[in-house]
Nucleic acid binder design. Sequence first.
DNA 1: GCATCGATATATCGATTCGATATATCGTGC
DNA 2: GCACGATATATCGAATCGATATATCGATGC
Lengths: 206, 206
Amino acid sequence: MLELAVLGLLAEQPRHGYDLKKRLSETLGPLWGISFGSLYPALRRLERSGAIEEVDEDAATPASTGTFVPTGSLKGDLAAARLRLRARPTRRTRRAYAITDRGRALFTELLTDEGDDDERAFAVKLLFCGHLDPLARLAFLERRRAQLNQRLVAERKPAARSIDRYSRSLLEHRARSTQHDLDWIAELIAQERAEQTGDRTEGATA
Amino acid sequence: MLELAVLGLLAEQPRHGYDLKKRLSETLGPLWGISFGSLYPALRRLERSGAIEEVDEDAATPASTGTFVPTGSLKGDLAAARLRLRARPTRRTRRAYAITDRGRALFTELLTDEGDDDERAFAVKLLFCGHLDPLARLAFLERRRAQLNQRLVAERKPAARSIDRYSRSLLEHRARSTQHDLDWIAELIAQERAEQTGDRTEGATA
DNA sequence: GCATCGATATATCGATTCGATATATCGTGC
DNA sequence: GCACGATATATCGAATCGATATATCGATGC
């Protein structure tokens, strides 16, 4: 899962660990508080398997973290010159990674995988589902809808045994949340369909 | 966290592992798919530390899992008799655990701990917050409210950099979900307050 | 100049949790 | 009797977490 998230971000552009972590936590938020203890090992795994590779940090878009941005002004040039002179400051500095062809293949594979679809997996896949073709994307969303529908059925039925006030409230709230999620997915699906029937330039493949 | 959940259930009555797992997953649902790979080690940890102890399975309420329930009928009596004759069938059968005094102390400690309050911790604590005194319960709920408020502020602000349609939709949906959670907590708090001012028999302690 | 501070950045450790799998037992239907 | 699915306990390797250590950089104050 972490692999997919990392590959998805690196597909845009090369980045270093700290940056990956920042972006992932700001997007996945409280759902998934990625820790360095899982991120760095994941990067090493990916590098070992040849899905990503370390690249010169100039290859990464500057301004990605806001640190030592060459502003183009005289003052900026000075800082940049200092940096360049020191020739990659000893180590403990940033290590930028880029995705490889092998990584791109893995990314597609993980994104298409219908096997794991827990809360996290769905959120991560949704983030990158722009890389899927419209039909695959629609299938992905429908899969989620079916899953939520099934869950809702389970949540709606009585409460089995007697439970106290707080447990009941939790159960009710979760059922409402599921319904909320379901409405959201339904809207996403509607948008997809509208768009697909909208550009009727290519013949319907399925 | 698992410890708290287990202790909370065992505080009601003795249970065995499989039963604990069923109840926890039916209540915590998709938020936390507890696995045996974490449950059984947790039980062993708790037993080693003296928080729980293995008890005769007759001590557990029958009908808890639906298996070999002594129905009281002739047919039921037959099965029960068979069971009793075999004197605890070799092993690989259920092991029921009961909470100890030490465990009850640990339970209170974990339940009151203000340190960890992620999504899971909140859900589990809410399940058992009936064991707290009204003021502590109110404080617990207020803590959650503050946490959600803070999150909402972070989620409301722009979107930093440009993101695609799906990412934006995810972000927006999460902000709405947080608001939804917030409304729920606010309602729970209102109920608590109403109840506390309702029974004005004892003096306000704080 | 330089001391200090907070943000940036990489790394590792132990403990917990997950997901898959193995295995045994029980009740039921054939 | 026996095949089957639900019940039940257990374990393994890998992934993840949370805490902590350490290094660098830029800014601030003196």
